[in-house]
Each structure stands twice: as C-alpha cells, then as structure tokens.
C-alpha cells in the first residue's frame, strides 16, 4: 500500500512539473476583470465622442476638420484603452506570480507572449491597413476575430480555459459583420463584458481561497 502511494505521488509530481514547465499558469483572473473595465470605460468615452460628432453633424453637416478630429480622438481613446488594459492586466498577473513564488518572466511566459503576439500583431497591421483605405466598418469585427484567434493559439501555453474566451470573441466578431454599424457595442461586449465574465470565472475557479 505504501509503495503504491509512493508511485502515485511520483506520477503526480511528474505531471505537476510537466505542466509548470510548459505552461504559464500565473495568469490572474483579476487581469481579465481589469482589462474588461478599461474596455468598457473606453467604449463609454468613444460613445460620447461619437454622440458629440453626430450632434455637430446634424447642425453643420459634414465638415472635414470635424471628421478628422473624430478619427484622431477615437484613435487616442483606443490607444489609451490598450495601454491601460495592458498595464493593469500585467500588474495583477505579476502580483499572482509573486504570490505563487514563480518568476513572471521565464521560458513559459516568454513562449506565451511570442505565441500571443504573432496573431495579434498580424491583426493589428491588417486593421491599420484597413484604416489606410478608409475602411472603418470591419475594424471591430476584425479586432475581435484576430484577438479570439490569438487567445486560442495562446491556450497551448497557459491555462486552457482561455480557449473558450477565444471562441466567444470569434463568434461575437463574426456576428458583428452582420451589424457593422454597431461595432462599438460588439466591441464593448467582446472586450469588456466577456473579459469581466472570464476573469470572474477564473478567479472563482483558481484564486478564491
């Protein structure tokens, strides 16, 4: 009986070390919640900016400077959201890695970052080229779809649950293509609400003691 237990323990040790050495598991659910809140705040400001533009549009008609200003404000909001989401997401994951006594930057997190960035950067460049041709309609669907694919690709290198978040992002992105005028709402749903739901589930599942 004793030897049997010992063998079982050894096998469990092996399994644990294989997991720990090939996946970055310190990804915190709080990171998801924080990123989701940043996205919702950003979407709110974007909505305000668009409302202001449309009020001016109704009064004065189309004016090139006003439209350019709208474009610039939206890009600034998008970049601010991206920066805030990255910083807060990184903070909570860094904190969790410290609690787990794991280094935040090791071979597993390096591999996760690289594999996440490949679809993400391709998507980013693709969206920028759409903007280059004044194609605004598919910015939100494309960002959701590419982000979903990045998550699915990354799921091999971190907690596997992230794959389901990826599937949902892709579905929302594809649905968005049928209501292209409502991009901002789909975007808020995909990047805001979904992140918060995912973050809460992850937190309850792995972190709540």
């Amino acid at each position: 009986m004793n030897e049997q237990n010992q063998s079982l323990e050894t096998l469990q040790d092996i399994k644990r070390i294989m997991e720990r050495s090939s996946r970055f598991i310190s990804l915190s659910g709080l990171s998801g919640i924080a990123a989701g809140i940043c996205a919702l705040v950003g979407a709110y400001f974007a909505r305000q900016t668009l409302n202001n533009y449309y009020i001016a549009f109704r009064n004065d008609g189309y004016r090139a400077p006003a439209f350019r200003e709208l474009e610039n404000s939206l890009i600034v909001i998008a970049l601010a959201v991206l920066a805030a989401a990255l910083v807060t997401a990184f903070f909570f994951t860094w904190r969790k890695a410290k609690q787990d006594q794991q280094p935040v930057w090791n071979s597993t997190s390096r591999r996760l970052t690289v594999n996440m960035l490949i679809p993400l950067v391709s998507g980013g460049i693709f969206i920028l080229t759409m903007l280059q041709y004044n194609e605004w309609r598919f910015v939100a669907p494309a960002s959701l779809i590419f982000y979903g694919m990045a998550l699915i690709h990354a799921s091999k290198y971190t907690v596997t649950d992230i794959r389901y978040l990826g599937y949902c992002e892709i579905i929302i992105g594809l649905l968005n293509t049928q209501w292209v005028g409502k991009g901002l709402y789909f975007w808020a749903l995909g990047f805001g609400v979904l992140h918060i739901i995912y973050g809460v589930i992850m937190w309850v599942k792995y972190e709540r003691n």
Binding site: I14, M18, S21, S22, P103, S107
Partner: peptide
C-alpha cells in the same frame, strides 16, 4: 527528465529556476 519530455530545449538557468 519530466521537463525535457515536454520542452524541446531548455536552458540551464530555466531548469535551475523550475527545480
């Protein structure tokens, strides 16, 4: 051995850290 089964190639420092 467990680490090398699931990682193609790994550095001395990473091994040291993980173990």
């Amino acid at each position: 051995m467990s680490i090398l089964m699931v990682n193609e190639e790994i550095s001395f420092n990473d091994l040291k850290q993980m173990l």
